[in-house]
Design a protein around this nucleic acid. Structure first.
Lengths: 340, 340
DNA sequence: AGGGTTTGAAAAACCGGTTCAGCAGATTTG
DNA sequence: CAAATCTGCTGAACCGGTTTTTCAAACCCT
C-alpha cells in the first residue's frame, strides 16, 4: 500500500494535479464544490505532503537547526539545553517545522555543519547558542545569508538579531540581596570568560559591588563541576575567604556546596551560596540552593517564534526576553562571625 | 550568487546532467578523465547536493528521528539523553545523515509524530527509547513498516530489533557487592514500573537477593528527584531501615543522599548508596557516589550504526551492547551497627 | 449580438537530483 | 571482415509537489 500523492487524489477526483494543489493550499482557482470533494478524498486517503517535494519546489526546508558543542563532560548535566529545546519544539511542532539537532565536539565543526546544512538546504535557519565574543560563526552566517537568531547574545550584536535576558538587572539584585544580608566579601565563580553572557554578568557584577562598597572577586571556569569545586576550594582556603559565593550555573553551585561540606564550612552559616540557572537540582540538595530562576522553555518558545517570523520574511528584530528572578532558599543567610 | 546545481556543473564541463550525476556518485559510465574534470568543477563551484532533490528522487530522507517525552521536570537533569544523542550524532554526522529531534509532552503525541514524519518522508527510520511494556508505538511502527531500533528494550521484543544492555548481570553484581560488604537489608528505589528496563532490573534484583538470603524491598517512582527523596524518607523512617539503597538513576541517588544528610543518617556509615547511571553528578556530591557506569555515547553510536544498516536494507538484528560496571566510590561501606 | 471580463480548470514548466534506455564509435570476437 | 560486445556519453522520464500559462465556457454591458 503506497502512500498517496496528489496525482492519486487528482485521478480520484477527476481533476488535474494543479487543481488539487490549489484546493489543498486554500488558494483561489477551484470552485467550492470541487475543493470540498478534493479535501474529502485527500482526507480519506490520508494524504500528507512529501516534505522533500515541497522543499524542492518552494525552496524551503521546513526545518530549523541547532548545533550544540559543549564537551560531553558538562553537556548532560545542565538542564538548560534540553529545556530550551523543549520550548523551541513546542513552537515548531505547532507549525509542522522540524528541528535538526547536532552535537559537535568543537566549535570548528559547527562552521562546517552550518555550511553543509545551508548548502544542502536542510534547514531554513538556525539558532545560535553560546555566543562568543568575536564569534566566527557570526561572520559565516552573514556571508551565507542564512537566517539566524542568537540565543543569549548581547543587545547590539552586529548584524544578527537575537533574544537575550536581562542578566544585568538580575546580577544587581543578587548583589543587593547579599549585601542586604550583611555580606561584605562576595566571590563569583563565573563560566567561560569568552562567552558574551559571562562578560555581561561580570561587568554588571563588578559595577554593582563597587557601588555598594563590597569586596569582590571573580574566578572564571569552564562551567564544569570539577572546576567549580576547585575554585571553591581555593576561595575558601584563602586568608580572607568570602562569606558568599555566586555560581554561574547550578552544577558548579552543587559542587561548591559539596566542597563546603567536605571542608567543614557550614552553609549557610559560614557561607552563602547562590546558583544561577535554577533547576530541580537546586532543590534536591541540602540545604536547597537560593537560585536565579528563569523559565527556559518559555525562552525557547519565544526565540523559536522569532526565528520562524524571520524565516517567513519578517524584519530582523532583537528583543529582550525576561529578567531572571532571585529565588531565596536555604543556602543564603546573614554571615556569622568567623571567630567561633 | 545562486547555489550551484549539477546542471551548472554539466554546462561548465560540456556534458549532460547524467554524466555529472554518475561522476559525483562514483558510478560507472564516465571515463576517468571526464570524472576528474567534473569533480574539479564541482569542487571549484562548492557544489553540495540538495537534500530535498535527492530525497525526492531516491526516496530516502537522509535523516533519522528521535522522540523524547519525559516530562520537563525530570528531563533536563539526567545526562542520559544528551549523552545518547551525542553518541548517535557522531555516527550520523560521519555519513551525512541528519537527526530530527522532538520533545513531546506525552506519549500519545509521539504516535502522531511518527505518523507524520513517516507520511511526510521526513525520516528514514527512528530510534525508540523508553520502551513500555505493551507499548502502542511498537504496533504503529510495525503497521507503518517504518524502520526502527529500540534502545534499551528487552531481548526478545516481538517484531522490532533493538540494542540493550546487560542490566541483569549488572544488578546481580551490585547485590553481590552489597551483600559482600555485609548488608542484610537492601532497598531499591526503582524508576517507572511500566518501563521494560525497570522490569528487567527488578526481576534480576529480586532473584539475586532471594538467592543470597538478603532482605529486600523495591519502591517504584517516576524517576524524579522529588519522589526519590520521598521514597528515601519513608525507607529510613521505617522500623527496620535498610542499610543500603540502590537508586535507578543518579538524580534520585543525589536526592537520597540529601535526605540522609537532612535526617542525620551518615553516609556511608549508616547508609550505603548506589546510583545507577553514572555521571559527573555522582562525583560532585559528598561523599562521591558508588555508581553503575556505562559509556552512553558509545551505546548511542552502536545503536545509530545498527539503525543505519537497517535503513540501508540489512536484516533486522538485535544485539546486546555492554554490561554496565559497578564503580565503587565513597558512598558504600560495610554497615555499622545501629546501636551507637 | 458582439466584444470584454471573470471563473474554473487543464496543461505544462519547474525545482535538482537519479536512473534507465538508447546510441554512436571503438574494441573484441568468431 | 562482419557480428557481437564494450565504453562513454546523451536524452528523457521520473520523484511529488508548486506555479505560471493557456483556454473554454459563463457572465456582463450597452
Amino acid at each position: 500500500m503506497k502512500r498517496p500523492t496528489i496525482a492519486d487524489i487528482a485521478r480520484r477526483a477527476g481533476v488535474t494535479k494543479s487543481a488539487v494543489s490549489f484546493a489543498l493550499n486554500g488558494r483561489p482557482g477551484v470552485s467550492q464544490a470541487t475543493r470540498d470533494r478534493i479535501l474529502a478524498i485527500a482526507d480519506e486517503l490520508g494524504w500528507q505532503p512529501s516534505s522533500a517535494a515541497r522543499a524542492l519546489s518552494d525552496g524551503r526546508a521546513g526545518a530549523l537547526g541547532l548545533v550544540v558543542d559543549r564537551p560531553a563532560r558538562t553537556l548532560g548535566i545542565e538542564p538548560f539545553f534540553i529545556q530550551l529545546i523543549s520550548g523551541i519544539e513546542g513552537e515548531l511542532a505547532a507549525r509542522d517545522v522540524a528541528l535538526l539537532l547536532q552535537v559537535t565536539a568543537d566549535r570548528e565543526a559547527q562552521l562546517g555543519s552550518f555550511r553543509r546544512w545551508w548548502a544542502e538546504r536542510r534547514v531554513d535557519g538556525i539558532f545560535l547558542v553560546e555566543l562568543h565574543i568575536d564569534d566566527a560563526r557570526v561572520e559565516l552566517l552573514k556571508e551565507l545569508g542564512m537566517p539566524a537568531m542568537v540565543i543569549g547574545g548581547p543587545q547590539g550584536l552586529a548584524g544578527l538579531p537575537g533574544v537575550w535576558n536581562n542578566d544585568m538587572d538580575a546580577v544587581r539584585s543578587v548583589v543587593e540581596y547579599l549585601a542586604a544580608l550583611g555580606h561584605r566579601r562576595i566571590a563569583r565563580v563565573a563560566g567561560l570568560p569568552e562567552l558574551w553572557h559571562t562578560a555581561v554578568r561580570t561587568e554588571a557584577f563588578e559595577a554593582r559591588v563597587h557601588e555598594l562598597d563590597v569586596a569582590a572577586v571573580t574566578v572564571t571556569t569552564d562551567y564544569s563541576g570539577e572546576q567549580g569545586a576547585r575554585a571553591t576550594r581555593s576561595l575558601l582556603a584563602s586568608a580572607e575567604p568570602p562569606t558568599a559565593i555566586v555560581y554561574d550555573n547550578d552544577i558548579m553551585a552543587v559542587a561548591g556546596l559539596s566542597v563546603a561540606a567536605e571542608m567543614g564550612v557550614a552553609v549557610p552559616d559560614r557561607l552563602s551560596i547562590v546558583a544561577w540557572d535554577d533547576s530541580v537540582l537546586c532543590q534536591l540538595v541540602h540545604p536547597p540552593l537560593t537560585a536565579v530562576s528563569l523559565d527556559i522553555a518559555a525562552y525557547g518558545a519565544n526565540v523559536a517564534c522569532r526565528l520562524l517570523d524571520l524565516v517567513a520574511g519578517a524584519a530582523a528584530e532583537s528583543a529582550c526576553n525576561a529578567t531572571p528572578v532571585l529565588v531565596p532558599r536555604g543556602s543564603t543567610a546573614p554571615p556569622r562571625e568567623r571567630t567561633r
